[in-house]
Amino acid sequence: MNSAAETYILPGGGASITALPKISLHDHLDGGLRPQTIIDLAEEIGFELPTTDATELAAWFESQSNSGSLVEYLKTFDVTIAVMQTRGGLFRVAREFVHDLAADGVIYGEVRWAPEQHLTDGLSLDEVVEAVQEGLEQGVVDAAESGHTIRVGQLVSAMRHADRGLEIAQLAVRQRDNGVVGFDIAGAEAGFPASKLADAFDYLAQNFLPVTVHAGEADSLDSIKSALFDGRALRIGHGVRIAEDISTTSEDDEGVYVELGRVAEWIKDRQIALELSPSSNLQTNAWGTELADHPFDVLYQLGFRVTVNVDNRLMSNTSLSKELFLLAEEFGYTLDDLAQFQLNAAAASFLSLDDRDDLIEQILTGFEQA
């Protein structure tokens, strides 16, 4: 494998966060390309880039993504998607994606992407899914040869504005025995609630395929309600605006007392996982511009099933280890806290119960040895 991850050490603890076993639930394939790979693939197809220097290109992506707007943030994907239209391009990106997860200590990753955005070179929906799966599987083999054990699954996403929800849901079910573990909807939230894809979600429910829904990132609490009611979501992609449904009732020397609204109470009591992505949330102004203002810690302390995610490693110049390091640095988390985040993610993964139990055992063993 030709990949390397920066090593992050737990503040004050000495343990290597990078070496710890981790679960990645919210990680976009088209948001995790290596800059040099973009340059190589762009040259092959004659696509013009802002720069052909890998370091400068990485900086360009991060700068463009720091707009404070999800709509502007999403425009950077015009570049990555452009170089992911051929079977070879999809294979390479997927293979390297696994290399980079393994180098970051990830033992299970769910890779989400939207097949409908990768058809301009003449491939069919099934062919692009198969190309990505071949790349993911080769990446797993490569990782094993380098001493890393990792599993991956595809989360097939429908673009919520494109009116192809049912078609993509049918694709996901058709490919469920070829690496697809679940379904998602992505893209601009405002004006495109889950209810607009009701037929897709009905079909998925009838076929028992798990669903996560982007909600509560760039739209209000109503988007989370729609994800739960219309989408039958088992997890919420981001969901940071669930904090709007939590109100402070009083405060004294012993602490702050809060009251949960109906939606927040439902998510907490039923342990519906929140796929929080702190750095990305700050970039898109989903909730504030400083990590100290992010509701991650409040949700964790209140008992929500919080998980830590990267969203888009390229755009946020991040990794799962870096996100955990930043949270530990800001909120004083210990090794036990980081373990809990991974256990939350393992329990929320779209694997069988036995496979989830295996992940939990790997996490407990890895953290005990740290």
Score class of each variant (00 low, 15 high):
residue 74 L to Y: 03
residue 74 L to N: 07
residue 74 L to R: 05
residue 75 K to D: 15
residue 75 K to C: 03
residue 75 K to H: 12
residue 75 K to S: 15
residue 75 K to N: 12
residue 76 T to E: 10
residue 76 T to V: 15
residue 76 T to K: 03
residue 76 T to L: 10
residue 76 T to Q: 13
residue 76 T to C: 14
residue 77 F to V: 05
residue 77 F to D: 04
residue 77 F to I: 09
residue 77 F to A: 09
residue 77 F to R: 08
residue 78 D to N: 12
residue 78 D to I: 09
residue 78 D to L: 14
residue 78 D to C: 00
residue 78 D to A: 13
residue 79 V to T: 15
residue 79 V to S: 10
residue 79 V to A: 05
residue 79 V to K: 05
residue 79 V to M: 12
residue 80 T to C: 06
residue 80 T to F: 07
residue 80 T to H: 06
residue 80 T to I: 07
residue 81 I to S: 11
residue 81 I to Y: 11
residue 81 I to R: 15
residue 81 I to N: 14
residue 81 I to F: 00
residue 81 I to L: 15
residue 81 I to C: 13
residue 81 I to P: 00
residue 81 I to V: 15
residue 82 A to Y: 05
residue 82 A to R: 13
residue 82 A to H: 11
residue 82 A to W: 03
residue 83 V to L: 06
residue 83 V to W: 07
residue 83 V to M: 05
residue 83 V to P: 04
residue 83 V to H: 02
residue 84 M to F: 03
residue 84 M to H: 02
residue 84 M to T: 09
residue 84 M to D: 09
residue 85 Q to M: 10
residue 85 Q to P: 08
residue 85 Q to L: 09
residue 85 Q to R: 11
residue 85 Q to I: 09
residue 85 Q to C: 10
residue 85 Q to N: 15
residue 86 T to E: 11
residue 86 T to P: 11
residue 86 T to W: 02
residue 86 T to R: 08
residue 86 T to V: 11
residue 86 T to Q: 08
residue 86 T to F: 06
residue 87 R to T: 13
residue 88 G to C: 00
residue 88 G to N: 13
residue 88 G to W: 07
residue 88 G to T: 07
residue 88 G to D: 14
residue 88 G to Y: 09
residue 88 G to K: 11
residue 89 G to V: 07
residue 89 G to R: 04
residue 89 G to A: 04
residue 89 G to P: 01
residue 89 G to C: 07
residue 90 L to E: 04
residue 90 L to G: 06
residue 90 L to C: 11
residue 90 L to P: 03
residue 91 F to G: 00
residue 91 F to C: 01
residue 91 F to K: 11
residue 91 F to D: 09
residue 92 R to Q: 14
residue 92 R to W: 00
residue 92 R to P: 00
residue 93 V to G: 02
residue 93 V to W: 00
residue 93 V to S: 10
residue 93 V to A: 14
residue 93 V to L: 10
residue 93 V to T: 14
residue 93 V to Q: 04
residue 94 A to D: 06
residue 94 A to L: 07
residue 94 A to P: 06
residue 94 A to Q: 05
residue 94 A to M: 08
residue 94 A to R: 02
residue 94 A to E: 04
residue 94 A to F: 09
residue 94 A to K: 03
residue 95 R to V: 02
residue 95 R to I: 04
residue 96 E to N: 06
residue 96 E to I: 05
residue 96 E to R: 00
residue 96 E to C: 08
residue 96 E to Q: 12
residue 96 E to Y: 00
residue 96 E to G: 01
residue 97 F to H: 15
residue 97 F to C: 13
residue 98 V to H: 01
residue 98 V to F: 06
residue 98 V to K: 00
residue 98 V to C: 02
residue 98 V to I: 14
residue 98 V to D: 01
residue 98 V to G: 02
residue 98 V to T: 03
residue 98 V to L: 01
residue 99 H to K: 01
residue 99 H to D: 14
residue 100 D to E: 12
residue 100 D to R: 11
residue 100 D to V: 04
residue 100 D to F: 09
residue 101 L to H: 14
residue 101 L to W: 13
residue 102 A to K: 00
residue 102 A to T: 09
residue 102 A to R: 03
residue 102 A to N: 05
residue 103 A to H: 04
residue 103 A to V: 05
residue 103 A to N: 03
residue 103 A to R: 09
residue 103 A to Y: 02
residue 104 D to K: 08
residue 104 D to T: 08
residue 104 D to G: 02
residue 104 D to S: 01
residue 104 D to L: 06
